[in-house]
Design a protein around this nucleic acid. Structure first.
Length: 341
RNA sequence: GGAGAGGUUCCCGAGUGGUCAAAGGGAACAGACUGUAAAUCUGUCGGCGAAGCCUUCGGAGGUUCAAAUCCUCCUCUCUCCA
């Protein structure tokens, strides 16, 4: 799922997302859309789909991630989180009910419980306490959410890298019976092996017939490995953010387009790729656009990276259906996170 | 022809006796980025393996313990006047 935090997958029009990257669903963010332009305004426009001109599914994150990423601007209490706006310094109270109310107004198809995403490292005591709060908030949010026919509310499994806490979290949420389960609090600085250990551990615990969404992950190889651990859905800013900063993902590894080695390289970003950027433009040209600060460079890099991510998971899906996923991973992973030289 | 200003490390540009291998910016080069306060941030940027040494501030001499900085001549550029 490409990430469009404030109602826009940066540099991409909905038309490009559909035609050039094959995106089926995108993300929005409750905290950011609440702060600007405001959920009431979005509601007046008939919801986020209409406001941004996107008629495919949308998933909104609840603002739980901002509890961590805006740590300097908020205070957590049992009732919720008091944020100080990163835009104008004004104070705003987010409660689990408020997060649902805002998400109801925004109108995404899949919405998230309000959670605390604990930082890493954090003491186990802290993670346990935070988890308890997050579970209470999940219950409160679920009780508050009435629009269940049109908006599927997911619970978020927390618990850091601790298996006992993860199990406690998953089972408590399953008791509440959500239509889908998110796995949060990973890829926040812990060792990769710890992240994979958590998804592997949760795989047999979470229900088979409900989607599992690993929040905020990740690199191409992270995604393939977590698919092997039973994850169905991913979102990550990496393909878009890194593309804008000149690191482009390909099936042969990361390509840093600004590197001098591509100055006169006539090849496309990826010779096997069929995306718009690769069909029409050389590495030399895209590098030139980046070095000259031209917006088109950011756009072409984003088109390619999103196209690649979505193609990659499409290939993974196909490999699963053909019962050769392990083989597929063994072939792809060594290349994916290498640095193209 | 006369008067004045100036030539600094890839570029622009500080620096007017020692703390200067020389501020700052740009360019260049290398990298980071995981539920987006991000078209951002970090590092390198004369040579040698570090302490240190060597070469460098238009050119050639000179003064001084010490010169990018002071003096002499040469050379080139720019501005104004004729």
């Amino acid at each position: 799922m490409p990430v469009g935090t404030i109602g826009s997958v940066k540099t991409m029009s909905p038309k490009e997302l559909i035609e050039d990257t094959q995106a089926q669903i995108i993300l929005g963010n409750t905290y950011h859309l609440y702060m600007r332009p405001g959920h009431e305004l979005i509601k007046k426009f008939g919801g986020l789909h209409k406001f941004i001109g996107w008629d495919r599914p949308i998933l909104t994150d609840s603002g739980g991630f901002q509890v961590m990423s805006l740590a300097g601007l908020r205070k957590i209490t049992k009732d919720g989180v008091k944020f100080q706006s990163h835009l104008d310094g004004s104070y705003h109270m987010f409660t689990p009910e408020k997060a649902i109310e805002v998400q109801n107004a925004i109108g995404a198809d899949i919405i998230m419980s309000f959670d605390e995403c604990p930082p890493y490292p954090a003491s186990k005591d802290y993670v346990a306490k935070s988890l308890k709060t997050t579970l209470e908030w999940a219950k409160r949010g679920k009780d508050f959410h009435k629009n269940t026919d049109k908006q599927a509310l997911f619970g978020i499994v927390q618990g850091g890298i601790h298996k006992d806490l993860r199990e406690e979290s998953a089972k408590a949420l399953m008791e509440m019976d959500f239509p889908g389960y998110s796995i949060g609090g990973l890829a926040v600085g812990e060792e990769k092996q710890d992240m994979f250990a958590v998804t592997e551990f949760l795989n047999p615990i979470l229900p088979q017939d409900k989607p599992r969404y690993l929040m905020g992950v990740g690199t191409p190889s992270d995604i393939l490995k977590n698919i092997a651990n039973g994850v169905d859905m991913f979102d990550c800013v990496m393909p878009t953010r890194n593309a804008r900063k000149g690191t482009i993902f390909t099936r042969n590894g990361k390509l840093i387009i600004k590197a001098g080695r591509y100055k006169a390289d006539p090849r496309p970003i990826d010779e096997e790729c069929t995306c718009y950027a690769c069909r029409n433009f050389s590495r030399a040209y895209i590098r030139h656009l980046f070095n000259a600060g031209e917006i088109l460079g950011l756009r072409l890099a984003t088109i390619h990276s999103l196209h690649f991510y979505l193609e990659l998971v499409g290939m993974a899906r196909k490999a699963i259906f053909e019962d050769r996923y392990q083989e597929f991973m063994d072939e792809m992973i060594p290349k994916l996170d290498s640095l193209m030289k």
